[in-house]
Nucleic acid binder design. Structure first.
Lengths: 351, 351
DNA sequence: CGGAGCAGCGTGAGCGCTCACAAGCATTGG
DNA sequence: CCAATGCTTGTGAGCGCTCACGCTGCTCCG
């Protein structure tokens, strides 16, 4: 025997009711003894609703276990309630860097407080980029948080055309579209660290700089130069090809080659510094005795290196907060401007 | 018939065009010279559509720049096209562990291939958990990927009541709801490592086990015991309180206290091992000369420790693939069973 | 004391899509 | 040569919500 209460695959019409779909606004209205419109108003801030009606609606909400149908709402409001967190870097980045994790986590939290959700999207390949664009154009997301943008990234320009609100995390390339951005003060942070290194009496200070095609790295290098002036010769600068441990090791190895007498090194990110420490150890240089090492980010890995890494703290929670704030403003149609947040030196044992 | 120049009281048509909303399916249909229905069919697999109509629709799609309105579609299909990636652990976890990053990345990619997106949701606090439940009940997500579940996590049971498809990553608690899960073979991996340690002639082998309230950790401990038998006394086991560097350091410190003569240690995760290495260094024990250290996960940090960490590889890309596969099956209404994937030993210098 | 103004509420008209249905047409077999 | 069959297509009816509008009944001022 077939249990006729079981949802039959074909008979949509009638069985639909039988199928457990949640209560609708109409159901809530009936229970509360008001109309759909009043329930809707109550749900959206409660303006122009009498206290009694409001209370009745809230009771009904609870007793029916009503959950709003976001699709129906989005259909008319044209707001999806979601934000894309777009990683335009090579996918490996997410794989390693704790900074990204921290950022995502805080953004997710703050977005949730505002009733929005975070959609993770990768944009490393052309197809992935096309998908992001598609989402933006189709209104599947209300805004985009663009993370780790390289110079010449085609996504930024294309995103600009969709007219979807975009905020960039970190300083964006100078020649891309002028999106508002939120960044730590990379240049000043680099100055802080370089000054610290010089202040410890080191004479031959080198740097492992970030990838050439990322604006944040350029800022950090500039800060380094600000302090060292002409002493910041080519010889003491090695560019990493990416923000990874391996790239840090490679760059440090090159540096030891071009500048064997270095006695301090400012490394443009903690992850790079992990690699740099490896290279130094491999070369038999003691840290901090022979060589002082300073990182950047104060990511979760910094206290765990050998020796613990002296670094420059990016106020990541604040970066996330401002990112969400700026994007929220933009989504609400209000203009918003870029923000640069102060950094601070965190002293540990490596320098 | 209808005089379209006549000012119809509610003539939205004209105003709509003025508002620059994207083209709708109706627009595409008009351009293609077919009906809405045909466009819809063409978009959804193209069954029962003539080749000519299909071609016309595709041209029209391109020329109009049409993007489907996901809300409208979801409203009727009751499919959101999104999956929640729920982190039920303390938020810090995401902050640190590269394993999670790798998992998220691969899941995002694979989900995208299937036309779905990944929503990151935290579930550390009661409010956050409520939000996840709300999403599940409201159909805002088609399914849930539940990561790092503790024993007694209330979310799992509540999620079960919503009848939303759920897949657990890692072995779930034994007494929770019986969701399908995808996990690495923790027990066998632990055996592999323990045998390796014993095979190198070490006599006093200890272990830093995972938190007591997580099933995966229990499995790893069991594998350790399988090999060591009665030698796996209480004295050689220290439980970490979480999968973090700090917890690893603490546990290792305790271990050195209760079992000063240990000459090898199996640490239940790479992140814990980073902490353990610190503690050993601090205690003046050389690795691997005095103490062999074996980790678990083969996360991005493993090759970067000092010395590079010998560990057990979890096939993370496969875990992610199976996770997505199982969830897809479940969402399609097909039953799916749990999967346990093989692990392998990765030899580096620490053991 | 009458009407303007307004808060509170209900109603109708969609938002853009999918799905069932029926109609149209070509193909095939009896 | 017509009925039966199957493929292709168009159409109507919503999915559950918001929003503009209009109605009611009250307050308040001229």
């Amino acid at each position: 025997m077939v249990d006729d209460t079981a949802p039959h695959p074909k008979s949509r019409g009638a069985a639909r009711r039988a199928q457990r779909r949640g209560p609708t606004m109409e159901d809530v209205a009936e229970v509360a003894g008001v109309s759909r419109g009043t329930v809707s108003r109550a749900l959206n801030g409660g303006a122009h609703v009498s206290p009694e009606a409001l209370a009745a609606v809230h009771d009904a909400l609870r007793s029916t276990g009503y959950v709003i149908n976001q699709s129906a709402r989005s259909l008319v409001t044209r707001r999806s309630g979601a934000v894309a967190f777009v990683l335009s870097d090579a996918p490996d980045r997410l794989f390693e860097d704790p900074v990204l994790g921290a950022l995502m986590r805080t953004c997710t939290q703050l977005l949730a407080e505002r009733g929005s959700s975070l959609m993770l999207m990768l944009a490393g390949t052309p197809q992935e980029r096309e998908r992001v664009l598609h989402f933006a154009r189709g209104g599947h997301v209300d805004g985009v948080l663009l993370v780790s943008v390289h110079d010449g990234d085609p996504l930024a320009a294309q995103l600009h055309e969709t007219r979807v609100p975009v905020v960039v995390c970190g300083r964006p390339p100078s020649r891309g579209p002028a999106f508002p951005y939120v960044a730590a003060d990379d240049r000043d942070g680099a100055r802080l660290m370089t000054r610290h290194l010089a202040g410890r009496g080191r004479r031959r200070i080198a740097t492992v700089a970030g990838p050439r095609d990322m604006a944040g790295g350029a800022e950090r290098l500039q800060g380094f130069r600000d302090v060292l002036g002409r002493r910041a010769s080519r010889r003491v600068i090695a560019h990493a090809t990416a923000y990874t441990i391996d790239a840090g090791r490679d760059a440090m190895t090159r540096l030891l080659d071009t500048c064997p007498d270095l006695d301090a090194v400012f490394v443009a990110s903690d992850l790079l510094a992990v690699g740099a420490l490896q290279a130094l150890r491999h070369a038999g240089r003691a840290v901090p005795a022979d060589v002082l090492v300073g990182g950047f980010d104060d990511s979760a890995i910094a206290p765990a290196t050998t020796p613990p890494l002296t670094t420059v703290r990016q106020p990541l929670p604040r970066v996330a907060a401002e990112l969400v704030e700026v994007l929220t403003q933009l989504i609400a149609g209000r203009p918003a401007s870029s923000r640069v947040l102060p950094t601070e030196l965190v002293l540990r044992e490596s320098a």
